[in-house]
Design a protein around this nucleic acid. Structure first.
Ligand code: FES
Ligand code: FES
Lengths: 146, 146
DNA sequence: GCAATATGTAACTTCCACTGTTGCGTAGGA
DNA sequence: TCCTACGCAACAGTGGAAGTTACATATTGC
């Protein structure tokens, strides 16, 4: 199964957007992510619907933050991406009605559901501002000993 | 991303194997899983390497348990399948050296690693015998009120 | 108005890992 | 010897994210 990298990419972009003066074009963002402007617009569209970013057409246009980093959690972005599947593993219904299968799926589902809740809670507790502060820390450390 | 159903399927099969008198052929198992005998052999091969099942050729041959359900945890089977990726989401290295990207990936990785550890611990705490007991409970309940 | 810029969107193709299939080889029982 | 069942290589199929092309639309500035 191929990996979904949208969450990682969007978090990266949002923090860069916060540090830029004006707006960033899809073209510029695409270069940050080593990808195509259309992919950027497609993915950012979801965040715009949820009010996290704005987009403007025409010269001088592009994408900019609509809210402060402090007000956005990592889980918010996950949800704005339509809550993609977190797990690569899932139960099956190969033989509907089989009680063995049902018992197996019940055991697996409870474990995975619990893990998902814990993970989302954790992602909800981290704001983009937290990540930006960690970035600033890394930048200071790097300039201190180059 | 397509889902990985090997863990679910193998747990299902192992419990059925425990309840059968003799061995089960790949053909029979394939019918349980609504799939192909080759898929069954391919997947069970990993479990055989780890000593959880045996296979015999020729008439009367097939697959049988090599250990008791009590001695096998759900996580054991996950590992016997070569520990497939648990998460459908992952970090990226789109712009190596970017400290923002590194801070994002650090935040995501710690959250995902933590969730993975908790999930595996949970799967390690459940034995196949536990699931078999839950199956027996479901069977009793069903025969009680049909 | 016109040209240039930038997003919006549809309609593809590509990529990747799990899944499914075919074919042939090998081992073991009757 | 014949039949059964696994072992394995070498494909094709599948589904969803990612990438690409093409064109429409809106906005700025002359
Ligand atoms: S993409 Fe983060 S610095 Fe270039
Ligand atoms: S597969 Fe037929 S009963 Fe479990």
């Amino acid at each position: 199964m191929k990996n979904d990298s949208r969450l990682s990419r969007m978090l990266h972009v949002l923090i860069h957007m916060d540090q830029l003066a004006g707006a960033a074009t899809s073209e510029q963002i695409a270069q940050m992510l080593s990808t195509n402007p259309v992919v950027v617009r497609r993915t950012l569209a979801g965040l715009r619907e949820q009010g996290y970013v704005r987009s403007l057409k025409g010269p001088g246009g592009g994408w900019s933050l609509a809210r402060k980093l402090e007000e956005i959690s990592l889980a918010d972005i996950h949800r704005a991406l339509d809550s993609p599947r977190l797990f690569a593993i899932s139960a099956t219904v190969d033989h509907a009605g089989c009680l063995v299968e049902q018992a197996v799926n019940a055991a697996l589902s409870s474990a995975f559901d619990e893990a998902e809740q814990a993970l989302l809670a954790r992602l909800d507790s981290i704001s983009l501002a937290d990540v930006a502060r960690d970035f600033a820390r890394r930048a200071r450390r790097k300039s201190a000993r180059p």
